Amino acid sequence: MRRLGPAFLAVSLFAGCGGSEVPPSSEPIAQQEARLTGTDVDVPPECQGILTFANTASFATLDAYLPSDVVTNLVTRRASSPFVSLADVSSVRLVGQARLEQLAGGARAQGFIGSSCVGVLDGLAVSTDDAAAIVSLVNTISDSELHDVLPDAWNGAVNLLTLRPFTSVQAISNVAGIGDVGLRNIRNSATLSRPLEALINEVNLKGDWGHGGATMARHFDWWQVVTTNGRYQYGGLECFGLEPSSVPSGASVRPYLADATEVRNEILNTVSSANRNNQIPSSVIAAGMANLDALTAGRSFKGCYFGYANDPWSGHSVAIFVDTVNGFSVMTDTYWAE
């Protein structure tokens, strides 16, 4: 089985699709918004006009794009507190996916959003930059990583792999098995680690210093990395957090997961190995590590450590970490050669 660890239950943040209406959420707004703090927001800057439209447009203007009873509910709610997210808007009675799309359509028609905002898909507002990143990721991601990104949407993952390549994020959203949580997980995987990926690129460009160095990866096929055969030497394979059926042959299993501190220390050590001549800009390192901290705080990780050599005169030490819930993954490789 090409999978690191058990599946975890993901709870849908939104309800309703097509023309159907859904009852209001019984969950307090504060709890809904708690999930959207930090980097995991549901409205990118390019689409903020949707919320501005919902908060400021007159009853008559909103009524041109939405049913009157929905407008009444929106106006009544915003009078007590402005909308701060699509999840917040969706908590209003009679507002489901169809109404969010109509709201976005009105915002576009009234000039609140432009061409840089694709619109609302599966309860998530998507910018054109994010859409391009999502399409690129889905078209290139490995089987093992995609199933970690979509731990509770295996059918959706299989369908994506079968139907790709895609040319639009709308087509990805339309795939059976990809809903609110699935699209959000894919968006997060494609977009939320950009500063870290910039640091990884610098490490890979400048991390070779003759008789050694370091490389890193953000998107990779962990199964292929761990199980590749034909190396001169293979040793020290230690894994953690894996389902028994996923433990590679010959691996030892430690009884505890990795935490944010362990991941940070490994990445910082790898960056230091690559940056022996101080050729990586300090601003890139600071931004990348801050991004890593934001993505790993309070999280738990499964993965493996191992060493290998392609010949008797070199050696590699590899570490792989995968978030147990959302599939965020990172790999480090430090190496030496005589």
Results as ranks from 00 to 15, higher is better:
Ala57Trp: 13
Leu103Arg: 01
Ala107Ser: 04
Asp129Val: 07
Gln48Pro: 11
Thr162Leu: 09
Ser300Gly: 09
Asn139Ser: 11
Ser80Glu: 14
Val71Ile: 02
Glu101Asp: 14
Ile113Gln: 08
Thr334Ser: 06
Leu94Lys: 05
Ala7Thr: 09
Asn155Pro: 13
Ala109Arg: 04
Gly207Tyr: 08
Val95Pro: 01
Phe8Lys: 00
Ser80Phe: 13
Ser193Met: 12
Asp63Tyr: 00
Ser68Thr: 15
Gln224Trp: 12
Ala190Asp: 01
Ser68Lys: 01
Trp222His: 11
Ala54Asp: 02
Gly241Cys: 00
Phe166Lys: 03
Val271Trp: 02
Asp208Arg: 07
Ile267His: 07
Asn73Gly: 11
Ala87Arg: 11
Leu13Ser: 15
Val325Pro: 10
Ala337Gln: 14
Asp259Arg: 01
Asn201Tyr: 13
Cys17Gly: 12
Val225Thr: 15
Ile200Asp: 15
Gly241Asn: 00
Cys304Asn: 03
Gln97Tyr: 12
Leu192Arg: 13
Ser85Glu: 11
Asn201Ala: 14
Pro195Ser: 04
Leu62Thr: 11
Gln279Ser: 12
Met289Glu: 13
Gly114Tyr: 09
Ala98Pro: 09
Ser193Gly: 15
Ala198Met: 08
Thr128Gln: 03
Ser142Ile: 01
Trp209Phe: 15
Asn278Gln: 03
Ile141Leu: 02
Ser68Val: 06
Asn204Gly: 14
Ala157Met: 03
Ser116Lys: 03
Leu150Thr: 12
Cys239Val: 15
Val225Ala: 12
Ser116Pro: 09
Leu51Trp: 02
Gly235Gln: 15
Asn265Cys: 07
Asn277Pro: 14
Pro151Tyr: 03
Gln48Gly: 10
Asp259Pro: 11
Asn229Gln: 14
Ile172Thr: 10
Ile320Pro: 11
Thr76Glu: 07
Ala287Val: 02
Gly177Ala: 05
Asp122Pro: 10
Glu46Ala: 09
Asn204Ile: 06
Asn185Glu: 05
Phe301Ile: 08
Ser246Gly: 14
Ala87Ile: 12
Asn174Lys: 00
Asn201Trp: 08
Ala260His: 10
Ala309Lys: 06
Phe59Val: 12
Ala15Arg: 10
Gly38Ser: 02
Ala153Asp: 08
His147Phe: 13
Asp259Ala: 07
Thr39Asp: 12
Glu145Phe: 10
Ala337His: 09
Asp143Asn: 05
Val226Asn: 10
Ala171Tyr: 03
Ile134Gln: 03
Gln279Lys: 02
Val226Ser: 08
Leu4Gln: 09
Leu9Ala: 09
Ala10Leu: 07
Val84Lys: 13
Ala157Leu: 01
Tyr232Val: 08
Thr167Tyr: 01
Ala34Arg: 15
Val71Glu: 04
Cys117Arg: 05
Val271Ser: 05
Glu238Arg: 14
Tyr335Cys: 07
Gln224Lys: 10
Phe220Pro: 15
Ser168Asp: 14
Pro165Ile: 07
Arg254Lys: 13
Gln224Phe: 13
Glu33His: 12
Pro195Tyr: 01
